[in-house]
């Protein structure tokens, strides 16, 4: 593989023609979900993701996408596949109801894991510190705070893309192990601790049927990703025992 191919994949995630391997689809899924929590849905982006999802070979998915993820992902794509303007209005309404005019669904980690209902609480400090240790921060133009679901999922997408880059490149096993470790740590310290709860709250809002699919897809992806990374970390630890610590 040459350098061009890397750049190709890296700069244009989520666009169907570059799809293929499951690591890439996984990263694209995180990126898409990040965007669905960040702003009102752009139906064309969902369509692009859907064709990526359809086109990649399910047989390969055993590597990194679990059964429930595949099921909920397909259900999500099936339900959302439409650029019908009436559906689009419904999606915008759901987004505003859930995230802008809150009835208990507030997509901030601080609201779930910090002192009750306050933004910028300790989880916000911790996740910011996590990004900083990873040498990153949220972008200057990004209005959402660091512990917003979209930013955390976006960071996870970033890690997943790095993972897919490493998997595609030869001689990067060591870094890949480290990136996998960071993903597991991020899931355990942040996403697993509150995103499933957020998803349950979304599913409890009757007026948001489309986002129910998003919520189910999100929690399946996170929970199965977590299980997979735990297993793989154990495997890595047993095979590399004594090499570091």
């Amino acid at each position: 593989m040459n350098q061009n191919q890397y750049r190709h994949r890296f700069t244009a995630p989520g666009v169907p023609q570059y799809g293929g391997d499951s690591a890439h689809v996984r990263a694209s899924a995180y990126a898409l979900l990040s965007s669905l929590y960040q702003d009102q849905p752009d139906v064309s982006a969902v369509d692009r993701f859907s064709s990526l999802w359809r086109n990649f070979d399910n047989a390969l998915s055993g590597n990194c996408l679990g059964r429930r993820t595949l099921l909920t992902g397909s259900q999500f794509c099936a339900a959302w596949q439409s650029s019908d303007s009436r559906v689009s209005l419904q999606l915008r309404r759901e987004f505003a109801l859930l995230f802008l005019s809150p009835r208990g669904v507030q997509p901030y980690e601080s609201v779930y894991r910090g002192t009750r209902r306050r933004l910028m609480d300790d989880p916000w400090l911790q996740v910011r510190e996590f990004y900083r240790k990873a040498g990153m921060q949220k972008g200057q133009r990004e209005l959402h705070p660091e512990d917003h679901a979209s930013v955390e999922l976006g960071f996870m997408a970033y890690l997943a893309f790095m993972d897919s880059q490493c998997s595609a490149a030869a001689g990067k096993e060591e870094i890949r192990t480290e990136v996998a470790g960071t993903q597991l740590q991020f899931l355990e310290e942040h996403l697993i601790g509150w995103i499933p709860q957020l998803c349950r709250r979304i599913e409890a809002v009757p007026e948001a049927p489309y986002y129910h699919r998003v919520a189910r897809f999100t929690s399946a992806l996170i929970e199965e990703d977590h299980e997979r990374l735990v297993v793989s970390a154990k495997h890595t630890y047993s095979t590399c025992k004594g090499s570091s610590l």
Binding site: T11, L32, K138, L153
Partner: peptide
């Protein structure tokens, strides 16, 4: 392997979650 600098998740055309070096 990719673009240097900020990492932009171009999941969609109009919206992006941006993560950049600290």
């Amino acid at each position: 392997a990719g673009a240097a600098g900020s990492f932009v998740l171009q999941g969609c055309a109009r919206q992006e979650t941006e993560i950049e070096p600290y």
